[in-house]
Amino acid sequence: MGSPLGDFIRTKRDSIQPQSLGLPDRGRRRSPGLRRSDLATRAGISVEYLTRIEQGRDRNPSVAVVRALADALGLDSAERDHLRYLTKITGGTCSAHRRPGPPPREVRPSILETLRLLEPGIALVTNRLGDVLAHTSGYGSVAHGTGLLDADTPNLTRYVFTDPRARTFFADWDDVADEQAFDLWLGASAGNAEWFTTELARTAGPDFTRRLNRHMVPRRGALRLNHPSGCELHLLRETLELPSDAQQLIVLLPADDDTAQALDELRRRSHGPLRAIS
């Protein structure tokens, strides 16, 4: 049985061409990427120890070993953060006896008041599992007609992977799907992520599972939306982390004049109040 940490290290190792690290090409091999022996040598650990980590038989590598593996794999800052996070949740997996369940959905009154101050802008409160917990009327106008907010408890991750309309609404659906799958690893706890992914895997199918397990750290650019009204929206994303709540406040801003004009038109058509979902 593997582990999130081992899966990430193995996936990164398979994605690296030896030549990019100045290593010789040793000819054809059964699997692509960097050999386990080469990575172990670069990290200063034994092949047997690296094998145990990758296979999930050693779940508590030291800080020094984790740092050495990050250096040996040439990870950037975002990937290093993810490696440290996976080390933390992997080490805690064996001691977690509590049955996993859904995270809390309540939004603090002060956060709701912040949303009201952002009206008529486009903003929402969500958690790492993709639950849309509250949103402004501006966000409602952008999502209107897409099916995203139709459920009693809307969830962005479930929408992306199970609603066919999502592939039209998100112009860069593949990138958004990678982002949503990756963010599940950053949930409030390993148990919460397990609860949701077990539920979602039954309906989302193998594409979701593949994206989740390859640990692709996303490069979050502008969000391009094909609105049902016929306009294309280019939106910049600003995210405020709410660590004590395990939530995020996300504000979407027009990236160009055409988008700003289109948003003004959408607001004129749709007038709705702030919505909190609990």
Rank of each mutant, 00 (worst) to 15 (best):
G2F: 09
I9Y: 07
I9M: 12
R10N: 08
K12N: 04
Q17P: 01
Q17I: 02
P18M: 02
S20D: 14
S20L: 06
G27M: 00
S31K: 04
S37T: 11
D38P: 14
A40K: 12
G44F: 10
G44V: 03
S46E: 09
S46I: 01
V47Y: 05
L50C: 12
L50G: 09
I53F: 05
E54F: 02
Q55G: 04
N60H: 12
A64H: 13
L73W: 12
G74T: 03
D81P: 01
H82Q: 13
H82M: 02
L83W: 00
Y85S: 14
T87G: 09
G92R: 13
T93G: 00
R99E: 04
P104S: 09
R105G: 07
E106R: 15
V107T: 14
L112Q: 11
T114P: 02
L117R: 15
P120T: 02
I122K: 10
T126G: 09
R128T: 01
L129G: 02
L129Y: 05
G130P: 12
G130H: 07
H135N: 06
H135Q: 11
S137Y: 07
Y139K: 09
S141Y: 06
S141A: 15
V142P: 15
T146M: 00
T146S: 14
D150A: 15
A151D: 13
A151K: 14
N155Q: 11
T157F: 06
Y159E: 00
V160L: 15
D163P: 13
D163L: 00
A166D: 10
T168K: 12
T168W: 08
D174E: 15
D174A: 15
D174R: 12
D175M: 07
D178S: 14
A181G: 08
F182K: 11
L186W: 14
A190V: 04
G191C: 05
A193D: 11
F196W: 03
T197W: 06
L200I: 09
T203C: 12
R211S: 02
N213A: 05
R214K: 11
R214Y: 01
M216Y: 04
R219E: 14
R224W: 08
P228N: 10
L233S: 04
H234P: 03
L235A: 04
L240Q: 05
P243V: 02
D245L: 09
L249P: 05
V251L: 15
P254D: 01
A255Y: 10
D258W: 07
T259Q: 10
A262K: 10
E265T: 15
R268H: 12
G272L: 06
P273Q: 08
I277E: 08
S278H: 12
